[in-house]
Design a protein around this nucleic acid. Structure first.
Lengths: 200, 200
DNA sequence: TGAAGTATACTCAATAGTGAATTTACATGA
DNA sequence: TCATGTAAATTCACTATTGAGTATACTTCA
C-alpha cells in the first residue's frame, strides 16, 4: 500500500491529536494511538520516530489547521471591533459547550510540560499562541481600531482565563463574564485610542 | 517514633506538593516522593492509601495554606479597589518571576486531569478556586465597591489568563498587560456601580 | 525484484502497590 | 524506677503490570 503513506500518516496525526487533546501527553500510550488509528504500534514507529516526535508533528499540523480556521473565522466577519470580540466569545462558548471538551490542546500540553522548557512541543505551542494573538490583532486592525495589538492582548488574556476557569468549574458562566469584560475593554479602548480613519 | 507521625505526614505532603506542582501528577512517581521526603515507599503507603489519595490530601492541605495566605495578603491592604487590584498583580508578577515557576499547582493539576471529572483532586481544586474568588470579592466589598463579585470575577479571569500565557511564553509582559486591563475594568466599574457609601 | 507498509511477538525499564519482618517510643505493672 | 508488652512507624525486598521502543518476517504494489 505504497500510495496510502500520506493518508496513513494523516490518520495517525488525527487520532493522536484527539487523544492528546483529551487526555494529555503522559496518559496516552502509543498503543492507544495505534488502536485509535486502526493499525499496530510498529506501523506507528515506521511513520514517527518517537512519542515526542509524534507530539511535535501533531502540534505542527494542528497549528496550521487552527490558523486556517481562525482566518476563515476572520473572513466571515467585517464589523466593528466590538462585533469581532462578541463573535469570538460566542465561538468560545459554543466550543466549550461540546460534550467532552477539555480545553485547548495546546494550552493543555504546554502546562503538562511546563517544567521542560526545551521540549519541542512547547516551542511549537508557543509559536502557535503568538501567531493566533497576532492574527487577532490584525483582525482588529482591519476594523480600524488604534493600537490593535494592545487591545488584542487584553482580550486574549480574558479568553485564556475563561478557558482555564471553565475547565476548573465546568461553568460556562465564565465565558459570559469574560465576554462582558472584553466588550467593556473594547469600548474603553475605542474612546481613548479612537477608531482610526485611516487604518495603519 | 510514635509521636512523629503527624510530622512525617506533613513532610510527605510538603515534598509531594513541591513535586506535583512542578512536574504534574503523572510524571511524579511515588519513589520520587519517598526520596524527596527521605523515607521509603512503604512508609508512604502507611500514611496514604494511594497516589490519588495522596494528591487529594496534598491539595486539601495546600488549599488551607493558600486561603490563609490570601487572607493575610488582604489584611495588609486597606485601600481602594484600584490599590487592591494593583497589589494583586504586583504579587503575581513577583510570584511568576521565581526561577522554576510552573504556574498554580491547582490549575496545573486540574488541567492535567481535565478528562476525569470525578477525580477527587478536581473537586478540591474547584472548591479552592471558588473560595479564592469569593475571598477576593469580599476584599473588594470591603473597599466599598458595588457589585464586588462581578468585578472580582472579571479581574480573576485576567489573572488566570496571565498565568496561562506567562507559562506558555515565559514572558512576564503578560502580567503587566493583565494588570493594566484590570485597572481599566476597575475604573469603569467604579463609574457605573459607584463606590457605595454604605458597604453592604 | 525491491522498497514501502504492516503485523506478530518480543525486550527492558519503570512504576503502583504489597508481604513480612524490624525498630522505636510510650504505657503499664512490679 | 525500670523491665517489658504493644502498636505505630519504618524498612527491605518483592510482584504484577504497563508502556516505549525493536527484531524480524510477511505483504503488496510498481
Amino acid at each position: 500500500m505504497r500510495r496510502s503513506a500520506e493518508q496513513t500518516r494523516g490518520r495517525i496525526l488525527e487520532a493522536a491529536y484527539k487523544l492528546f487533546r483529551r487526555q494529555g501527553y503522559n496518559r496516552v500510550t502509543m498503543d492507544n494511538i495505534a488502536e485509535a488509528a486502526k493499525l499496530t504500534k510498529r506501523t506507528l514507529y515506521h511513520h514517527f520516530n518517537s512519542k515526542d516526535q509524534l507530539l511535535a508533528d501533531v502540534l505542527e499540523s494542528q497549528h496550521h489547521l487552527a490558523v486556517q480556521a481562525f482566518r476563515s473565522f476572520g473572513d466571515g466577519l467585517s464589523g466593528s471591533a466590538e462585533t469581532i470580540v462578541q463573535a469570538m466569545f460566542q465561538d468560545l462558548a459554543v466550543w466549550a459547550d461540546r460534550p467532552r471538551w477539555a480545553g485547548s490542546g495546546f494550552t493543555r500540553l504546554v502546562i503538562e510540560l511546563a517544567d521542560l522548557p526545551g521540549h519541542p512541543a512547547r516551542l511549537i505551542a508557543r509559536r502557535h499562541k503568538a501567531k493566533l494573538e497576532k492574527c487577532f490583532g490584525e483582525l482588529l486592525a482591519q476594523s480600524g481600531v488604534g493600537r490593535p495589538n494592545k487591545l488584542a492582548r487584553a482580550v486574549w488574556l480574558l479568553s485564556e482565563g475563561a478557558v482555564s476557569l471553565i475547565l476548573v468549574h465546568g461553568d460556562r458562566g465564565y465565558s459570559a463574564a469574560a465576554s462582558e469584560a472584553a466588550i467593556t475593554l473594547v469600548r474603553h479602548h475605542l474612546k481613548n485610542n479612537g477608531p482610526e480613519l485611516l487604518p495603519v
